[in-house]
Design a protein around this nucleic acid. Structure first.
Lengths: 216, 216, 216, 216
DNA sequence: GATGAATGAGATTTCATTCAT
DNA sequence: TATGAATGAAATCTCATTCAT
């Protein structure tokens, strides 16, 4: 039986897809490391092992590529958040789980933090111009609302807590520590990313949020 | 009597100082708006209304200028922190005061936030190379330690609270909300900087921190 | 009866011809709009609704395509000129007819003008390399010679008029006005292509040529 | 007496002026030879013997440079036209003088022709955007009007001749022959720029215009 | 005959920096 | 102290063309 030299249509498509994804991953790393302004298209091509021209072929220009990267990293975190299944846990456990998840995700995806900072430096123009911005809303907000409500009903949580505010607070406690770890270290002289320091931070964050939420 | 075309020594020095400060302010705005990578030396000169060459004359190169800007904005916030006089207040009031100060300062100095983000994107290299990094340590840490200790002694605060962790947490609650306001708005569709939203955020932050600190 | 997926030979040939003509028309428009240097192969493919590769398949490269376009537009005008039948008219009427034809043809085929300008910018290299250049000679020259001779014999036209010079003059009177209408308009502030202005130009051209030719 | 190493202020200014003029001349030649689309900024810098960056320093970008070139060549021809002093001549001599001038100027400045063609290919956008477009109006129009009027009064010229139409016609007779000399040659097989052919063309043009203008 | 993916060379433009005074 | 002119290196992006079916 002879080898078929012409691949099926789907396979051809997959090649284009693969190239696009390779570029996307390379771009994500480059943008994360240098920011939008400091990123170099040449370096992205090099990282991807693909011709620079192909980047323009698929993504039009640097700005659009950045937008594509942003959409991608948001989709990634949302996918993970969707897997959390917080409603199946006790309210306090659910909140603890969310704090841990947030902390771990940010730690394991430092690119997410720098990319978000870059996006905000540009006033999130790349997101507001995105047609998919709608889909990027966090699925956690709704689950967290349910968790808070259940906790309140069961008498363990205080009432009147806005789930968006709480979500932002949890994020903020983790984000600031990790995003600014270099300046904090330069100024305080502590190694904030040493295992012990990291454990202490997570513990502190949990104390703060639960200390606030739990009824005495 | 002939006009003297060359100003006296002191005057020249004062001019030099003024030029330096003008450049510094222009650079701060430019770096804040575009980040280190996106900032343009030409634009800084234009903002300052001074010749580009002067920038190199006084600050050697773009990186050193960025470093000078960073040191300056840190000195500015530390100066303000020093005016807080938290020890003169009741512990809970002192903490509330610190939260409000942090929130207001970040709000009124958005350039501080973007500059810090830029510094961290570059792994705070500009700070660690600075000879004045030592002076940039926050005077609040020590005062906050005293406040926490007094609160604990008076029985109003829980014990075992690390002042650095708390300081970072307060900063984080404010910083993340303001730094990421553009992406948050693009995704949640809320205007986070409307007066009402701002008041709610400050109120929530205070609730979280005091809820955590105060004994029942 | 099974569907035949491959069209019959003749059909395929007809498809090929059609594709070639589609490309040719698209290329003519593109070259006319942007010149040889400014034309984009991508845009030609887009205009033709065909794959870019086909252009190379049929025409080898951009230069050869331009050459093919040039030959085509010359063939087109020569075909129209052949339909004029000037010898069947009175000499003065024949000349008037030629002036009107020239004016109308240039007006209705602005692409002819810009293509000729492009060809001349490149020193007509695309024509001199063409094997069909011979066929591009105007059939009008000979008829015009006959018309002039008859007019002279009948005593209505002056003698000693070179038909090529006259042909070029008629063309020039129309061509310059239309080719340079944009700059003329920018400078004189008149709208040269308004109906009234157009009628005046044709009238003037006829006056000039007949004023020159006709005996008193 | 020591050489003064610092040139006077005016001399410094002249250096910048000289650079600008050098660039302008180089750009004029390049644009004339290759058109706007085909011109290369690199080649302009090379022709000028100056750093490519300087072109952007003085002229912002390629389009603005083209605009500056256009303004310049228009100013040049207008300056020459102003020197004509047609009103001092007999009407018929004045018109002959204008025809000769137009013919000679176009012959000696082939760049003017190709630049105008380029400008028109771009719909004279570079002129209409120019603030100096007003100044580019030909001074000849008014003088020609006076000449025509005087000729009519003296009974040598026909009446009712629009000076703009006549100006355009004279230009057209010369322009078309020279602008399209390459295609004409490729098609007619004549060398249109040989001395004899040139003399014949000028003679023919004069015959046409005066044949039209002069009363019998 | 027809096509989407890919590429190398080169285009315009940008930018930090230095020169010359 | 201050400045306009000038530059080399490198950035983004373009374009005609070819590859692989």
């Amino acid at each position: 039986m002879a080898r078929d030299p012409s691949p099926a249509g789907e396979e051809r498509v997959r090649d284009a897809d693969r190239s696009q994804n390779t570029i996307l991953a390379a771009a994500r790393d480059e943008f994360a490391e240098y920011g939008l302004g400091g990123a170099r298209v040449d370096r992205i091509a090099e990282r991807a092992g693909l011709n620079k021209r192909l980047i323009y072929y698929y993504f039009e220009d640097k700005e659009k590529l950045f937008q594509a990267v942003l959409e991608q990293v948001y989709r990634d975190i949302r996918d993970e958040e969707r897997k959390l299944r917080l409603t199946e846990l006790e309210p306090a456990t659910a909140v603890k789980r969310l704090i841990e998840f947030t902390w771990d995700y940010y730690r394991e995806h430092p690119e997410f933090i720098t990319l978000l900072n870059s996006a905000n430096l540009h006033k999130a123009r790349h997101l507001s111009e995105s047609k998919r911005a709608r889909e990027l809303n966090s699925p956690v907000i709704e689950t967290l609302a349910a968790v808070l409500e259940r906790g309140r009903k069961e008498g363990v949580f205080r009432g009147g807590v806005d789930p968006v505010q709480l979500y932002v607070s949890i994020a903020g406690l983790a984000y600031f520590y990790l995003s600014n770890s270099h300046t904090l270290q330069a100024i305080f002289g502590r190694d904030l990313l040493a295992p012990k320091a990291r454990a202490e931070r997570l513990s502190h964050m949990t104390d703060v949020i639960l200390g606030y939420l739990l009824n005495a």
